[in-house]
Structure formats: structure tokens, C-alpha cells
């Protein structure tokens, strides 16, 4: 049973997701610029979505659980909106402080 391909991909996705979350959180927490933080936010988000998707195989006998997929799609939309707002704010900040340090 250990070689069952479904369980293997569940683990692979889950581990990849965990690694992405870890990388992203590190990128977010270290002293850095706002733009990098926004990118890191997206990486963490992708990691969580991957992890979330992997949980859809929780009970292999019933096949893939569709609920996480539906939630992930919603989550992606939310993350996109947040990213857009962050970028818009950064642009606005750059505009009002034109000529000054943009990485405030």
C-alpha cells in the first residue's frame, strides 16, 4: 500500500505546500521592501492553497473531495484582490512621495 500513487501525490503536494508556506513566511518576516512582502504573501498563499488542495484526498476511498477546490478558487480571488490593493497603495505612495525613497 505504501506505493499507492494517490497517497504519494497527497504527500508530495502537502510537503510542497508546507515548504512554500515556510519560504514565504521567511520572506515576509525578514526586513525587506513592501513589494517583496507582497510577493511573499502570494507565495505563502499558494502554499496554503496547495496544502488545502492536498487535504481533498483525505479519504482516498471516496476520491477527491471537491469542497477544498471550491474554497481555493474563492481564496485565489481574495488573494488577488488583496495584492491589487497593495500594489495600488504602493503606487499611490510612490506618486505622493515622488522623488523620495519609494520603499517606505
Amino acid at each position: 500500500m505504501g506505493g499507492d500513487p494517490i497517497i504519494a501525490s497527497w504527500l508530495v503536494y502537502g510537503c510542497c505546500g508546507a515548504v512554500l508556506v515556510g519560504l514565504g513566511l521567511f520572506g515576509f518576516m525578514r526586513p525587506t521592501t513592501t513589494l517583496r512582502r507582497v510577493l511573499a504573501f502570494n507565495i505563502v498563499g499558494s502554499g496554503i492553497f496547495l496544502l488545502f488542495g492536498a487535504t481533498g484526498y483525505r479519504v482516498p476511498s471516496t476520491g477527491a473531495d471537491p469542497v477544498p477546490q471550491a474554497l481555493i478558487i474563492t481564496g485565489i480571488v481574495v488573494a488577488l484582490a488583496a495584492t491589487a490593493l497593495a500594489v495600488a497603495l504602493m503606487l499611490a505612495l510612490a506618486r505622493v512621495s515622488a522623488g523620495r525613497d519609494e520603499d517606505a
Binding site: 508556506v21 504573501f41 498563499g45 488545502f52
Partner: peptide
């Protein structure tokens, strides 16, 4: 504010995913 809110959302979402698992 947005940075704090984003970290908050991510931690919350991660928790929710684990709870679902």
C-alpha cells in the same frame, strides 16, 4: 495596516486548512 492584515489572514487561512484536514 494591510501588512498586518495580510499576515493575519494567512495565519487564519492556514489554520482553517489544517482544521479542514
Amino acid at each position: 495596516y494591510l501588512m498586518f492584515a495580510l499576515v493575519g489572514s494567512l495565519l487564519y487561512l492556514l489554520g482553517a486548512a489544517l482544521l479542514y484536514a
